[in-house]
Design a binder for these strands. Structure first.
Length: 488
RNA sequence: CGGGAUGUGGCGCAGUCCGGUAGCGCACACGGCUGGGGGCCGUGUGGUCGCAGGUUCAAAUCCUGUCAUCCCGACCA
């Protein structure tokens, strides 16, 4: 098969592409900028989706579904919002095809032009707030806590599998509240859910913070973010939660009567994470042998490989282990494929990121043991058959923790402080990563720093210590350091 | 959208400069030998050379256009 993966040190981008393709996560498609998510990649997404969905439901949210098409006029209602997306919208202009009168194929029927063009949703704020106007009349209708799992389209110039595609899958939550405080609390609650999911499920450490004016979502009052650091020391925005104030309530005239019979505008939030998380997952843990997956999200947690091939004795033990795994809720498969040899299978499952591999051969059975190999460290050990599943149960937890600790250590080693622009540039050009530095709080300075260094302010961390200092560019006073990095 | 590179069986590539009717490795099929980290030998299947025009007796090769992918930049989740 000779499926070689480019080394990270050689060409990081190519390494990433190789992992995506050779681990069977996704392929490019016939449509520019769009990808085919393959079964292995989709199974991963399903696990992520299911867990997030549980977390949303546990905090009182419900799912709904809104149309993929948005009337063009809706996007004109909130000026700032539309400005953020206008450049990357797909537009539907016609609703019928016809046979080409000149010969082969089909052409757009010019007589089927739409009265009003439809925009393929880049995000659903507008159509949802148009709908909320009908749903909300009284304070008794609030809060309204709705999420949807959907695809969206943003016509990107430059795409990369999972990280930035023209069409992607995501969830978008849209909530309406009676008070500002409640909406702000909702925004932060979701940020906490995202952070918890990233750290406890993806084993990907994140920094929670608030975006600068320049970096925040079009139409939001505040954008909160979770920022992760990839293995090439570039930052990845992994999820955002927006406090929208009353901007959409005003634009779509969504009001309610409060307890005092007074008509008030509602307060809003929106928040989302996307298939981009899969890109983050890959770049946080994987190595030169392929994908590395955290056990909690891995489609298959354990694979049993018979050595050198299935036999009655081996099968019996394997089936027993499978059954015990199933009882314990461990996802386990047994590869009985006769056409592939063990060495091939080892390489293949390493490529696909299966956290634990069990090898069972005649020699093991004689000693009443199996060989257990872990994907994260490549360590192998022999364990008595009877205790194998218990051992694996503990091992999966250990792998999950190890991946998180390893990633955390990497982030800590790649988080620096800079007190001058020279030092700042020096760090970015050598080790990269997050750089904590003082900033005078203006967009102008932020843009100048970006121009000179290609680094942007990823966020102002929420758990930030106050520290007096001076801006590394202008020397003006600053009350705290902010987090800079070059990013995806 | 700017700059650079690349499109040749499923995958990776050679052939292109200097035009003569397509080749290698892997994969795949069949047979045999094997068997604890991507096996070996043999026999085979599979390609209108990204697409569309043009030049020519003749085009993978030369010319024009176009599409796609990758890398770098601007923009964004």
């Amino acid at each position: 098969m000779a499926k070689e993966i480019t080394n990270r040190s050689e060409d990081y981008s190519q390494w990433y592409n190789d992992i995506v393709k050779k681990a069977g996560l996704a392929d490019n498609s016939a449509v520019r900028g769009c990808m085919v998510i393959k079964p292995h990649g989709f199974a991963l997404w399903e696990n992520m989706r299911d867990q997030l969905d549980r977390m949303f439901k546990d905090t009182g949210h419900v799912n709904a579904y809104f149309p993929i098409f948005i009337p063009k006029s809706f996007l004109s209602k909130e000026a700032e919002h539309v400005e953020g997306f206008a450049k990357e919208c797909a537009v539907v202009t016609h609703h019928r095809l016809m046979n080409d009168p000149d010969g082969k194929g089909v052409v757009v029927d010019p007589s089927a032009k739409l009265e009003e063009e439809l925009i393929v949703r880049p995000t659903s704020e507008t159509i949802i707030w148009h709908t909320y106007r009908d749903w909300i009349n009284s304070y008794r209708d609030l809060p309204l806590l709705v999420n949807q799992w959907a695809n969206v389209v943003r016509w990107e110039m430059r795409t990369r599998l999972f990280l930035r595609t023209a069409e992607f899958l995501w969830q978008e939550g849209h909530t309406a509240h009676a008070t500002k405080q409640e909406a702000v609390e909702e925004t932060l609650q979701i940020l906490d859910i995202y952070a918890k999911f990233a750290e406890e499920w993806m084993a990907m450490p994140v920094v929670k913070g608030v975006k600068t004016v320049n970096e925040r979502f079009a139409g939001a009052e505040d954008t909160y973010t979770i920022e992760a650091l990839m293995q090439d020391a570039k930052a990845l925005q992994a999820g955002t939660s927006h406090f929208l104030g009353q901007n959409f309530a005003k634009a779509f005239d969504v009001t309610f009567l409060d307890e005092n019979q007074k008509r008030e505008l509602v307060w809003a939030t929106s928040w989302g994470v996307s298939t981009r998380l899969i890109g983050g997952l890959i770049m946080t843990h994987s190595d030169d042998d392929g994908l590395v997956l955290p056990p909690k999200l891995a489609p298959q947690q354990v694979v049993i490989v018979p050595i050198p091939k299935p036999s009655e004795e081996v099968d019996e033990v394997a089936e027993k282990i499978m059954a015990t795994c199933k009882e314990k809720g461990i996802r386990c498969i047994f590869d009985k494929d006769l056409k592939k040899r063990p060495g091939f299978k080892f390489a293949e499952y390493e490529m696909r990121g299966v956290p634990v591999r069990i090898g069972i051969g005649k020699r093991d059975l004689e000693k009443n043991q199996v060989e257990i190999a872990r994907r994260d460290t490549k360590e192998k050990t022999f364990v008595p058959i009877d205790g194998a599943v218990d051992y694996i149960e503990g091992l999966l937890v250990e792998i999950q923790n190890n991946l998180f600790q390893k990633a955390l250590k990497f982030r800590e080693e790649h988080t620096s402080s800079a007190d001058s622009l020279e030092e700042f540039k020096e760090i970015l050009d050598t080790k990269g990563g997050f750089v904590k530095a003082h900033w005078d709080g203006t967009t102008e300075t932020e843009l100048k720093i970006k121009e000179q260094t290609k680094a942007t302010i990823r966020c102002i961390p929420l758990e930030n210590e106050k520290e007096e200092g001076v801006c590394i560019l202008t020397g003006k006073p600053s009350a705290q350091r902010v987090l800079f990095a070059r990013s995806y």
